[in-house]
Design a protein around this nucleic acid. Structure first.
Lengths: 186, 186, 186, 186
DNA sequence: CATGAATGAGTATTCATTCAT
DNA sequence: CATGAATGAATACTCATTCAT
């Protein structure tokens, strides 16, 4: 049942965060999920299928969270704040999902579908940014550069906090948001 | 000969960037280096030893580059510019080294020495930032948060450029530097 | 299944007798057992574990055979005859087991448990011999020396017969037993 | 020079006694001999050549010692005493050589020459024994059985002493000799 | 002659995957 | 459906042997 499927995904997520995809074995996944090794193959075609499902699932979770009722007509400042705190909400609520998505390099095993999702999100970010630039609310620079900075800053913040065993509270998230907005505001 | 040693390190670096440590096999390393598989073990005790040597070597290269004649008495703005462009110089001159260091998660195989180097660099960054804050030149916020943002923004920029096959020119680096300075200036 | 486990042990026994522990490879063991190489590791932790299991198993088989209903109250002459013919029975019924146990040097791979069994058997032999000496039935000499002679003679007999492709019949065993008793009788 | 050749043989002997032929590596032999690994191949065609040379050399040393001025016309009792104490002399003077020759199983690597030497010694022993039997001085039994007993007793004595860390003194050797003579006397 | 760096076949062991139960 | 025993290809690593110096 879907129960086992979820258990497998949850176990795999933990292990992929701890040791990476190539450093995790299928028997380990099975044991942590509390199922037989063969059972994994009733639910997934291969180890790659598990990691891609996980990638897509969490990427979509994050995207959905950011996009749900996004203030499409608000000012860029407002939009940025929404973007930032929704990402923060995801990072806080799903620390494993976030660590998996953003603290690991997936290049060697993502399939075409997963790559397409990633591209779609990128497109959206660029469009949103370009619109804000046209309205003169965001600094006039290559949108790629700005996105890199914003996303990088967000990830860097979470990573650094994790490495230093520092917990980010509401205030820290707000401060960081203000800092990063300064980086891209017009 | 040091020749083979270098060839092994260069080959391993490429492969670790492409597929990560666990995704790279020793025979692959040997083949790309143009040496026999056994030869690797005349130069390194294990696969782990290779990755740690690579990590330490490149981390030190980057550190040396940032610290050589660092303008210790200059204003924070000047210092930040120096930091940024020196890191950029490294990222441009050693794209593989940078990708290896910053685009992969090393937690599962770094040894104590390698971790110590990482910690030392972090200390330095925090000290530098705190001093600038005391002089009122940098925004008064948790140094951890600021470092996370700055380093993250730098890495995110390089990563995004890489993913979009975008080459960062002088102007882009300068623009990015100005953006990120805005994020942390007082 | 215990079936495969037994097949592995039987194959390993043959090979260890032929080529010794270090001269035998795991793939050879697997092939002769008619199982995949990986299967060996579902039943044994390592090649060492196989050899120790074999050693302990056969040592205990031999010991059990000697000790079952041993005529503890009989005269030494009777006891010696029992000891000798029981060992002979084992050597005849389990020629591979005997060759493995006594015709090879195990020092470099026996674990603590295996060594303990060996020591226990030695203790028993010495006690038995000393008692007979106190009763004046066995020559008054260092028990170590006598045991060395008796066990050595037994092993030497089997070895020599093996090397000369000579089959030991009932009569030969009896003759040999009388000879060796003469060596230790009071 | 022959110096290195001897050093290699001495080192190999030690290692073969400790870990057996298959458990000893050529680099180990080279290191213990204080020579380069390649040097071994200037003096010996292969690892097998080393072990066979060692086997032949020590077997001949032992044989020469036993046969030099052997009391060919003495009584069997005298001859046996000579045989025993000459073997004992060898075992005491060359403990490594003895341990190598008699405490290890050589079947898997001895070449034709080495096997021939072994056969020659056996022939001699049988002849000597048969003659003594014809003179009525030795028990009338299969010479194979008697040789197995005598040689086995000798080896077993040395082995047991070694395992129990017991040093055999003059008296012990003499006692043992009397015991074993009793086993085969007419 | 002596060396030791280099090698590739070989070693013990692991692992993704299959399939009989 | 679920399992876990079985597998053989793959993995990290070793070793007897060679050969350029």
């Amino acid at each position: 049942m879907g129960d086992k499927r979820e258990a497998i995904l949850a176990a795999a997520l933990e292990l992929f965060v701890e040791r990476g995809f190539h450093g995790t074995t299928v028997p380990e996944m099975a044991e942590r999920a509390g199922v037989g090794a063969g059972t994994i193959y009733r639910h997934f075609a291969s180890k790659e299928a598990v990691v891609n499902e996980l990638y897509r699932g969490h990427k979509q979770l994050l995207t959905a969270r950011v996009l749900r009722d996004f203030p499409v007509d608000a000012a860029a400042r407002e939009q940025f704040k929404a973007l930032w705190h929704r990402m923060a909400g995801y990072a806080v609520d799903e620390p494993l999902g976030f660590a998996f998505l953003e603290l690991h390099n997936h290049r060697s095993y993502l399939d075409a579908d997963s790559l397409a999702i990633e591209a779609r999100i990128r497109e959206f970010g660029i469009g949103f940014l370009a619109a804000a630039q046209r309205r003169g609310e965001v600094r006039d620079a290559d949108p790629m550069v700005l996105i890199g900075i914003v996303m990088g800053a967000f990830i860097g913040l979470v990573r650094f906090a994790g490495e230093c065993k520092l917990t980010l509270d509401e205030a820290a998230w707000r401060t960081a948001e203000q800092c990063v907005w300064e980086a891209i505001r017009a």
